[in-house]
C-alpha cells in the first residue's frame, strides 16, 4: 500500500466518523427507525456472510450457511473472529440478555383467553435467583385454582413464561390449538389451559396436586440463545409425587420456527401424551415401557 492509498483510506474513515458523530448528536442516542432514511445511517447486517478468504468452494460455504444457523463460514483474522462477525455475536448476546427481562404481551394472554396465575416470585430478581419461588404458586393463585380450575381431567396444559416471554409469544398461538385439536381427535379430556407468570418447570408438580389431572404439560420459554429467543420446551410429567425425579419428565425442546415447528410439535405432543396415558408413565419410565413392547 502506498502513501496516497493510505491517505485516501484515512480520509474516508474520518468522513465516516464525522457522519456517525453528526447523526449521534442530532438524535441524542434515540434509536433510529429504518424509515428515518438517510445514507448517514449504518444499516448493520444481521445476516451471516461468507467471509472465508480464498475458499476452495464458495458455493459450498454459502449452501452450508443456509442449512444451519450455526456461525460457520465466517472466516478469521489470524485466529480471531472478523470484526463484523464479532459485532454480530455481541449484538445477539445483548438482545438475548434484554429478552430475559421482558414480560409476555398481555394482549396475547387475553386473545387466547388464558387465566393468569402467579408464582411466589414477585419480581424478576427473585425469579432469577430463587428457584423455589418460581416452583410454587402464590396463595391467591392456589385459592383461585382450587375454586376455578377444572379438576380430574386427563391433561392439564400450562403455559409458562420461563426464561423467554418471546418464546411464549411466538409459539403459543400455533402450538396450543394444535395440541388441543390432537387431544380432541383422540378423545382425551383436558382442562382449560392456564398461564403461569414467572414460573419454573417444577411448578407443574404444584398444579398437578391441585387439579388432580393424570398429566401436566408445561409449555415453557427456554433461556434465550443467540440464534433465537423464540425456543420453547414442553415438559410432561405423569402423576408427579414425592418420588418424582428430573428423569421422570419427558421433554421436547427447541420448538420454534427454526427448529421443530409449533404445528408439527403440537401433533407430536398429542401422540406422546396418548402414549403416556396408555403406559401411565413419563420420562425414563416411559422409555422403559416402550422398549419392552
Amino acid at each position: 500500500m502506498n502513501q496516497t492509498e493510505i491517505t485516501k483510506i484515512v480520509n474516508e474513515v474520518l468522513q465516516e466518523l464525522n457522519k456517525t458523530k453528526a447523526s449521534n448528536e442530532n438524535k441524542e442516542g434515540v434509536p433510529l427507525k429504518k424509515t428515518d432514511s438517510a445514507a448517514d445511517i449504518i444499516d448493520f447486517t444481521e445476516q451471516a456472510e461468507m467471509a472465508v478468504d480464498e475458499p476452495k468452494n464458495k458455493d459450498t460455504i454459502q449452501h452450508a450457511q443456509k442449512i444451519t444457523p450455526a456461525r460457520i463460514g465466517i472466516g478469521r483474522s489470524g485466529t480471531r473472529m472478523k470484526t463484523k462477525s464479532y459485532l454480530q455475536f455481541r449484538i445477539d448476546h445483548a438482545a438475548a440478555q434484554d429478552a430475559v427481562l421482558k414480560d409476555v404481551e398481555p394482549d396475547m394472554i387475553k386473545e387466547l383467553n388464558l387465566p393468569v396465575l402467579q408464582t411466589k416470585a414477585e419480581d424478576m430478581e427473585t425469579y432469577l435467583m430463587d428457584l423455589e419461588a418460581g416452583r410454587t404458586l402464590n396463595d391467591e393463585s392456589i385459592r383461585w385454582l382450587k375454586e376455578n380450575g377444572e379438576k380430574g381431567k386427563q391433561i392439564q396444559i400450562i403455559i409458562c413464561d420461563g426464561l423467554s416471554s418471546t418464546a411464549v409469544e411466538s409459539n403459543t398461538r400455533d402450538l396450543l390449538p394444535a395440541i388441543v385439536q390432537g387431544l380432541s381427535l383422540k378423545g382425551i379430556t383436558y382442562a382449560k389451559p392456564l398461564f403461569v407468570k414467572r414460573s419454573r418447570v417444577w411448578v407443574q408438580d404444584h398444579v398437578a396436586k391441585i387439579v388432580d389431572s393424570d398429566i401436566v404439560i408445561s409449555l415453557i420459554g427456554e433461556r434465550p440463545g443467540l440464534a433465537t429467543a423464540e425456543s420453547l420446551s414442553a415438559y410432561m410429567v405423569y402423576r408427579p409425587g414425592e418420588h418424582t425425579v428430573e428423569a421422570d419428565r419427558t421433554v421436547i425442546s427447541n420448538i420454534h420456527k427454526g427448529g421443530l415447528s409449533p404445528v408439527e410439535a403440537g401433533a407430536h405432543l398429542a401422540d406422546l401424551l396418548e402414549q403416556m396415558l396408555q403406559y401411565k408413565a413419563s420420562g425414563v419410565q416411559l422409555v422403559k415401557h416402550r422398549n419392552k413392547k
Binding site: 444451519t68 450455526a70 455475536f89 445477539d92 427456554e222 440463545g225 443467540l226 433465537t228
Partner: peptide, 14 residues
C-alpha cells in the same frame, strides 16, 4: 461454531 451453541442455547469456547 462462533462460540454460539444453536441447539443448547448457551455460549462456549469457539
Amino acid at each position: 461454531p462462533g462460540g454460539d451453541d444453536v441447539m443448547l442455547n448457551y455460549q462456549d469456547t469457539s
